[in-house]
Design a protein around this nucleic acid. Structure first.
Length: 488
RNA sequence: GCUCCCAUGGUCUAGCGGCCUAGGACAUCGCCCUUUCAAGGCGGUAACACGGGUUCGAAUCCCGUUGGGAGCGCCA
């Protein structure tokens, strides 16, 4: 039943269980969910596992995990059930069998005994003759005796649709009127020789029995739609409305692939991206709100979503823009929240995070500097180790400052800092600034020496805050150690 | 080969016949801020694929060309 009839909108995502959640799948799922939420409909997750060789329960879980991490929630699915179950194609096998049997009984489908080799030969001949490579109907009108004979030979058969010689049309929600002359289309297989349904057939049966009203999927399915329409027509069912979404592309404008970078949701998680950033980025890759707003929470996306502003041309996946979104979202996080997200990355890098509050104070120093969570261990590591590696070059400016210069400066700093009444940002800053003046050093130059002494590097979180966090004892010990190292 | 889809800066896009000397964002460049690096602020460079029409007027409509993509499977 279509939406025009007033019934509830039902949309779906139907991934095949490939083990990982592909970004393309994720974006399509997102759009479908947004559409359902926007119009008070239901968003269904169905597992398209008719290709048994590639399907396992673990490979299904990988897909669900990716979607869940992104915050994509379904109203019905294999994990939570629902009134239209089961939600795995293999568990609905009988429905395809019944549908195929009906088409056979009505003469709208027939058994084909051609072997893959014979079909391959036919295809090659057609191509060589400049004709379209398709099935030319060898088994279309087999007599009963011929069939019996072939079966006696022990031949297996598939079931093919008797494709009508007519023009099929539909109105695509994004691209308008579409049509195709099916006279050019050979009879296609709907049931494989092992009895399992082919995608184009199973999907129609599922869409029908699950009462889908709208099908939003990638453009690669646009041409398939006509085959599916033929099935709907043969079954006497009303098709849902279709909308064919754009593809995501590699920087070289080929279809997005592993080769050019990350494509699985889990990879983005491991690279330190925030799910809300990825969702925001994906949403804007192929859709626009019609305004200049760039940052959207999931709720805002629901509110702003519209089929009219879904784009029709493919979009390059620009990781630089994702990075920007990620930074924006990181900066919007509270220290507590950021710390919770950073923690696993710190631990994975081998740092032992004892005190939660300390971690929170640490991440607060780098909130503005963090592009990805994976950068945190590198930036904050010095706060979680006993001592840091020092390299003479890091202190810098060999021509400008000799090691002796630096030793003198650091010694002065050590003296000034050890004499502070309180180990606070204000006192430390006042002491060091005062020292730079009396020593005749530029503030930046002097602070750089302290910076390197306590962190081992030249690019770090703000110095005064870092010293406060490190504590007086550790800070002074590191300065002393740096002096000793430079004196060697 | 056949069928179909798409076409605004490097990237994502706004634009749906005059409001366009084409707007926003990312990236990039410069300046400011500044204890490093960021973040932030300000400013700059940069696009209507090409050729025909239609029209008083075209980025916007039509046709063709080119380019890119998809499909033509017992993959989904």
């Amino acid at each position: 039943m279509n939406a025009e009839c007033g019934s509830t909108i039902r949309v779906r995502i139907a991934p095949s269980p490939t083990g990982n959640c592909h970004v393309g799948t994720a974006r399509t799922a997102l759009y479908n969910m947004l559409y359902a939420r926007k119009f008070g409909g239901k968003f269904i997750l169905r597992i398209d596992d008719t290709d048994q060789s590639r399907s396992t329960r673990e490979s299904e879980e990988g897909v669900l995990e990716g979607l869940r991490w992104l915050g994509i929630q379904w109203d019905e699915g294999p994990d939570i059930g629902g009134p239209y179950g089961p939600y795995r194609q293999m568990e609905r096998a009988h429905t395809y069998g019944d549908a195929a049997a009906r088409l056979m009984a009505e003469g709208k489908a027939y058994r084909c005994y051609c072997t893959p080799e014979e079909l391959e030969a036919e295809r090659r001949e057609a191509l060589a003759a400049g004709k379209p490579p398709r099935y030319y109907g060898k088994c279309r009108n087999l007599a009963a005796e011929e069939r019996a004979e072939l079966e006696a030979e022990g031949r297996k058969h598939v079931i093919r649709m008797r494709v009508p010689d007519k023009i099929l049309t539909f109105v695509d929600l994004l691209r308008g009127h579409q049509q195709k002359d099916m006279g050019e289309r050979g009879d296609f297989v709907i049931v494989k020789s092992d009895g399992s349904p082919v995608y184009n057939f199973a999907t129609v049966v599922d869409e029908h029995y699950m009462d889908m009203t709208h099908v939003f999927r990638a453009v690669e399915h646009l041409t398939n739609t006509f085959d599916q329409l033929a099935v709907y027509e043969a079954m006497g069912w009303d098709p849902p409305q279709f909308g064919h979404l754009t593809l995501m592309l590699n920087p070289d404008r080929t279809k997005i692939s592993k080769r050019a970078g990350a494509v699985y949701i889990g990879e983005f998680r491991d690279m330190g991206y925030l799910p809300e950033a990825l969702v925001n980025f994906l949403a804007l890759l192929g859709w626009n709100p019609g305004t200049d707003q760039e940052i959207f929470s999931m709720d805002e996306l629901v509110g702003a979503f519209s089929v009219d502003t879904l784009s029709r041309s493919d979009a390059v996946f620009d990781i630089k823009k994702l990075d920007w979104f990620n930074g924006v979202y990181i900066r919007s996080l509270t220290p507590e929240n950021l710390a919770a997200r950073v923690r696993p990355f710190m631990e994975k890098a081998g740092y032992v995070i004892g005190d939660q509050e300390f971690l929170e104070r640490a991440v607060a120093l780098v909130t503005d500097r963090l592009g990805k969570l994976t950068e945190a261990p590198d930036m904050l590591g010095f706060l979680f180790v006993d001592q840091v590696d020092l390299a003479r070059e890091s202190f810098g400016g060999k021509a400008k400052f000799t090691s002796a210069d630096i030793v003198r400066a650091l010694t002065a700093c050590e003296g000034a800092l050890s004499g502070l009444a309180q180990w606070t940002h204000e006192e430390i800053e006042a002491a060091l600034r005062g020292l730079s003046k009396s020593l005749g050093w530029k503030v930046g130059d002097l602070l750089m020496q302290v910076r390197v002494a306590i962190t081992g590097r030249r690019v770090t979180p703000p110095l005064f805050e870092s010293l406060v966090l490190l504590g007086r004892a550790k800070s002074l010990a590191r300065i002393a150690r740096a002096i000793a190292a430079l004196e060697e």
